[in-house]
Amino acid sequence: MSTVTNPRNRDRAGRTGLYVYRVIAYFVLIVLSLLCLFFFYVLLINATRNHADIQKGFSILPGKNFTNNWNSLMSNSELPIFRGMLNSLLVSSLVAILSTYFSALTAYAIHAYDFKLKNFAFKFILLIMMVPSQVSALGFVKLVRSMGLMNTFLPLFLPSIAAPAVFFFMKQYMDSVLPMEIIEAARIDGSGEYYTFNAIILPIMKPAIAVQAIFTFVGAWNNYFTPALILKEKNMKTLPILIAQLRSADWLKFDMGQVYMAIALAILPIMIVYFLLSRYIVAGVTLGSVKG
């Protein structure tokens, strides 16, 4: 709102009104922040406590059982959490790389060239952008099975070559930063079209690629539905499947310290990245998010 002053708003009543308003605003903000932080604080604290202590209720201070919980989780052969982390890391990295690279290439095709089907291709991609992957999951699983790709990572990262939402973001970004003169200059210098894209366009796109790489990485890291249908073998499972297993097993028999430790390990890598890069991530939300 503007700072233009109106004498009527500057009287004492207005000022106390503003003061009360500000107190309310801070109060609500602090309550919401505490709500968001509370659960993760409890998670981290409980990951350091032993089963008996956890059953007694909350604690503000961490316990002394961190190494015990860690060791019992690591020696639990039913829950290969580190293996899961490596699997998740591999799949998510490949998704991030493939979706950003090929989305940039697709956006470049639409942005830089004039061809008959250009408008159709653009509109088509926009149209399919919001259709969720679940609706084709049935055919997808059947296809993967008939190709003999069950329990492999290929069907989890190859489809990300066609990522309409990432494409849309890249296209928007190109519209704002990529003048045709650069491409024409490259052509005059004798650069081939594909070389121009890799050597000149990609570096210009770096900020957009970074933002989308983070979002697609996190999305793949957290993805549960499709991987759970494809990966059935213990050593191939990604983190969300292993976490879901905690719930499926007779959880009352579980050592709760171990359960909290497993959840913490699944969340923590993303949280660390988030707090390091939060400024870029929060700024990136406005630019391209089209999620639920």
Binding site: A109, G139, F140, I161, A162
Partner: peptide
């Protein structure tokens, strides 16, 4: 080149989304 650069996207889309969707 516009068409060539669209090949990966549409190949992946047809194989992993369109065919499964039709099959569904």
């Amino acid at each position: 080149w516009g068409y060539i650069f669209l090949i990966p996207f549409f190949t992946a889309f047809i194989i992993f989304t369109l065919i499964p969707l039709a099959n569904t």
